[in-house]
Design a protein around this nucleic acid. Structure first.
Lengths: 377, 377
DNA sequence: GTGAAAGCGCTAACAG
DNA sequence: CTGTTAGCGCTTTCAC
């Protein structure tokens, strides 16, 4: 019986087995125990067993059509019998590729509803696998002094083939730095700074049209009969925030409605959303709120609770990101949902183009969000 | 001016530079442009520049105390000047180690408040880095037929040094399978099946004492004057669920209070929590709820809203996991918080022991959760 | 179609 | 303390 190399060790079977190293003297020997940490079979082992050269086995794996069908079958059978899988390190060394894509993961944001990145990571891992890649996570340095240290290290040691960069807000040095190094990367997020200056993006990116999302949300509320719809967004220096805000004002102005006095720009915290909504309710009596994030929307829900108002009955609320919070909070928070699964697909697709020969540095892809309607509107 | 190898390409400086490959003829030449994808410097480049052998450079990195101080300084200076970083693939091939730890990531659970894994991943990445490891994420196969395919692949291709296994519920085949293969891994979660049979755990694990958490939660409510405290937990076949339940009943019985008719066991969904709490309110008039998860607790909040009751005023509610939801939902959900940062530290510590020579397969580590008190209690 | 030779960049073992 | 030698397992020439 031919079994996988490690089964031999595990089950301690007394069988005629091939040893894992190509040691001719051991072939056909009886082994009561294999060493516990037996080294996996190599190309040479497979070759010997199949009666071909190492090269032929390599071809069977990487260029199967070069082999004669019967040879291929024989080699394949040996591969299966031995449970062979090419050694990654050796392959990486030879091909100068790791089939790993790096992604920096920041500290978990507590006290907010921001879980976009987590949902995205899931999707990215799934999609990468189909393209033959794994995702390598690395931490932000934590030190303000060198925000690109993690990237630098991975790049110089050729640990990853490419990066996925997720926080491409204006002034973020990573994209520019990676570009300068000619490091392959795809950004989840527009290159705001480049677009600002009317230039062409010089790197691949995928993004979701935030303005389209908030416009969708605002139209939804308008269709429900609301006229005084307030906006709670981020501070003016946030490009993403201003983009999302523009969707709200576009929808309002599109119906000939004024926006004066209905907007507020604050930090992205629950407390800020709570305070901003309280002020707006006092000053402008809105019947609905569109928010730049679920976090801010939760702040609105706090204010409504403070005042004995019920979301979805007295005042409508819409958030942004369709976080878990939006999904489970009573009575359900209507929220703009980013198509993160599709973002992942586009990111991987751009990555593949980037790593092809010759590399294709595609331009941007813009995706449109949807609206998850729930009890709050 | 000596600059990092890639800076040369990026800034297109006209300088006297060392080329990246050890090509004697090029030393001291003037280069207007370096090739855009110049290969990083190797050990040989550093050695040549420092006037030592390759081995000495290797020692400078891996065994600095073997070098004479002045030699070390000279080598270090060359390393810095060239921006040298050892090629991972080559090192991995030679040392038979990847310095990567694999972790399977399941699909994102929508419609629940379960974000434990995400918080844990963050912590794990941070902690691993300090130990010189990176985290490699891989996806569940999705196919029910072979739940260990991802592990198998990574293991056989020697892509990772070890695994962190997170879902060790009873009957989960992964732990047993990995153990059989002699694959180094640490479980986040007790080996329930082994403990059940009174045996010693044969693999390293780290877990959080769920019963202690619910006991803490229940005592907190008892101290607030509640007597009729209901439990909403998971189905009986969940070992974790039964463990958490035991903390509640222990606290209740400890004060001589009955638990009959106060417990409910349902699926881990918001809807189940909502229905269960509605039933319990009708049948047993509890004044407080302790739940096995934040998801179930959110179900309770739904019921309270349905009935015009206010959490924290009319009825107290405590959840489990201290999810983002618990943190932002009005009026704040009191919740048992797992010390995930500490779990990560213990996991990495166990991993290091496992990968040491000789490997130390430590037994289990049990950590105690805390209670995050908020408006709902 | 298949095989032989060379070498990716590094480190373990030994020699000086 | 430093240098020499060898080889990790694989794939890319290039013969045959």
């Amino acid at each position: 019986m031919w079994c996988h190399w490690i089964d031999q060790a595990a089950t301690l079977q007394v069988e005629e087995v091939w040893v894992t190293r190509s040691d001719e003297h051991a072939v056909g020997q009886i082994h009561a125990r294999m060493p516990l940490s037996a080294t996996p079979p190599t190309l040479a082992d497979v070759a010997e067993r199949a009666g071909v050269s190492r090269q032929t086995v390599s071809n069977a794996i990487n260029n199967p059509d070069l082999l004669r069908p019967d040879t291929l079958v024989r080699v394949q059978e040996s591969i299966d019998a031995l449970g062979y899988s090419p050694n990654r390190a050796a392959r990486n060394l030879r091909t100068r590729a790791s089939h790993l894509i790096g992604m920096r993961i920041g500290p978990a944001q507590e006290g907010t509803a921001n879980a976009t990145m987590d949902r995205f990571v899931h999707s990215l891992v799934e999609t990468s696998r189909e393209a033959g890649y794994h995702v390598l996570l690395f931490a932000g340095t934590g030190s303000r002094t060198d925000p690109v240290a993690g990237y630098d290290d991975l790049l110089r040691s050729t640990a990853v083939d490419a990066f996925v960069v997720t926080d491409t807000y204006l002034g973020n040095p990573q994209a520019a730095w990676l570009q300068e190094r000619r490091a392959p990367f795809v950004a989840f997020g527009r290159p705001w700074d480049t677009l600002q200056h009317g230039g062409q993006a010089r790197h691949s990116w995928v993004d979701v049209d935030g303005a389209a999302g908030t416009e969708l949300a605002t139209r939804h509320l308008l269709d429900k009969g609301h006229h005084r719809i307030a906006w709670i967004g981020w501070r003016k220096d946030s490009r993403i925030g201003e983009d999302r805000r523009s969707g709200w004002s576009r929808a309002m102005h599109g119906r000939g409605l004024p926006t004066t006095g209905l907007a507020s720009r604050v930090e992205d915290t629950v407390v800020s959303g709570r305070e901003a909504s309280a002020h707006l309710l006092d000053s402008a009596q809105p019947t609905a709120f569109v928010c730049a994030s679920d976090t801010l929307a939760m702040g609105v829900l706090h204010t409504l609770r403070d005042r004995g108002l019920r979301a979805g009955e007295h005042v409508a609320v819409v958030g942004f990101d369709d976080s878990q919070v939006a999904q489970v909070v009573p009575p359900g928070l209507t929220s703009v949902r980013q198509p993160l699964e599709q973002v992942a697909v586009e990111v991987v697709s751009a990555l593949e183009a980037l790593l092809a020969h010759p590399p294709v540095s595609g331009s941007g892809v813009m995706l449109t969000p949807t609206l998850a309607v729930r009890g709050s509107s």
